[in-house]
C-alpha cells in the first residue's frame, strides 16, 4: 500500500470533520474490502479515518424496528437473537458472508457505503425498505442505491445506523461466484407492513442491486414459489463474465427466488 496518515477520532463530529477536511481522506470501517484494495495499491488516500471508536456498534430492537449500528459486524448480526427473531433473513444473510474471519471484522455500514454490486446487504436493505441514518439525515433505501459503487452519500457523510422494519417474512438465497464466493446472484424476499412484498436482487445487475417488480406483484397475490415459477427474468442489463452469462444469471434469479420464497 501507499503511505498514508492515520487517525482514529472518538466522536462522529470529529470523524466528519476529518473526512471533510481532505478530499483524499477515506473512512475505514471493517476494512475487509478496503485493506485488500490498499494492499493492491488501487487506492491512494492521504488520510485514513478509523471509525472503530465512534460508538457505532450494537443492535437495538423494539416491536416495530431493528436498528443496527453501522460498525456492527456480520458476526454480531448473524448471532443476534433479536435479528434472528425479527428479521431472520437478515441474520441468515450475515451468516453467509465471507468466512469466519471476515464476519468478525466486516461491518454492515462499510458494506453499504461501498455498495459493491456483488455485496449481500444491499438486497436486504432494499427488500426490507430499511432506512439509512447518517451523521445528519436519514435516507430511504429506495433513494440510497444509485448504481455500482455509487450511493446517495455525500462526500464525507457517515452512515451511523441502519433501521430495518420487523419482517413478516424474510429470506435470502445466494448463488456464490465459484471463484470469489461473492454473490453472483443473491435474492432477498421480504414482506413488511410498510412495503408489502419486495424482491431485491444483488450480484446480477450491471447497475447494482435492483427490485424484481414482476415477482413482487405475483408474490403479493400468492406468496409461494409456484406463483413465480413462470416468470422469466430478462437477461438485458445483467452482468456477464467467465463465470456466468447474463442468461445464466437471469435463470439463477428465478431459482434463488423460488428457494427463498419456499423457505421464507
Amino acid at each position: 500500500m501507499y503511505d498514508f496518515n492515520y487517525t482514529k477520532p472518538s466522536s462522529i463530529p470529529e470523524a466528519v470533520q476529518a473526512l471533510g477536511a481532505d478530499m483524499e481522506a477515506k473512512a475505514l470501517a471493517g476494512g475487509q474490502t478496503f485493506i485488500p484494495v490498499l494492499k493492491q495499491r488501487l487506492n491512494k488516500p492521504t488520510v485514513i479515518v478509523d471509525l472503530s471508536e465512534l460508538g457505532l456498534r450494537g443492535i437495538a430492537a423494539d416491536d416495530k424496528t431493528v436498528t443496527i449500528g453501522a460498525m456492527t459486524t456480520h458476526h454480531q448480526i448473524e448471532s443476534s437473537p433479536d435479528v434472528q427473531r425479527l428479521v431472520p433473513g437478515l441474520a441468515k444473510m450475515a451468516a453467509l458472508i465471507g468466512d469466519t474471519q471476515v464476519r468478525h471484522r466486516g461491518t454492515m455500514g462499510g458494506s453499504l457505503a461501498n455498495n459493491d454490486p456483488s455485496a449481500c446487504y444491499p438486497a436486504a436493505v432494499l427488500a426490507l425498505g430499511a432506512t439509512i441514518h447518517t451523521d445528519h439525515r436519514s435516507i430511504a433505501a429506495d433513494d440510497y442505491f444509485q448504481g455500482m459503487f455509487t450511493t446517495a452519500l455525500e462526500p464525507g457523510e457517515l452512515i451511523t445506523a441502519i433501521e430495518f422494519p420487523v419482517a413478516e417474512k424474510s429470506n435470502y438465497e445466494k448463488f456464490r461466484n465459484p471463484a470469489s464466493r461473492y454473490a453472483m446472484v443473491g435474492v432477498f424476499v421480504a414482506k413488511t407492513a410498510a412495503h408489502g412484498v419486495r424482491v431485491a436482487i444483488t450480484g446480477a445487475g450491471q447497475g447494482g442491486v435492483f427490485r424484481h417488480t414482476a415477482m413482487e406483484e405475483a408474490l403479493a397475490k400468492d406468496f409461494s414459489p409456484e406463483a413465480i415459477t413462470g416468470i422469466i427474468t430478462p437477461a438485458d442489463g445483467l452482468n456477464g463474465d467467465i463465470h456466468a452469462s447474463p442468461e445464466y444469471r437471469a435463470h439463477l434469479i428465478g431459482v434463488m427466488a423460488r428457494r427463498a420464497v419456499a423457505a421464507a
Binding site: P178, A179, S180, I242, H243
Partner: peptide, 11 residues
C-alpha cells in the same frame, strides 16, 4: 490473463 487472482481463478 482473465483469471489473474483468486477473484476469478477458482481455488
Amino acid at each position: 490473463l482473465v483469471t489473474g487472482s483468486f477473484m476469478d481463478y477458482q481455488m
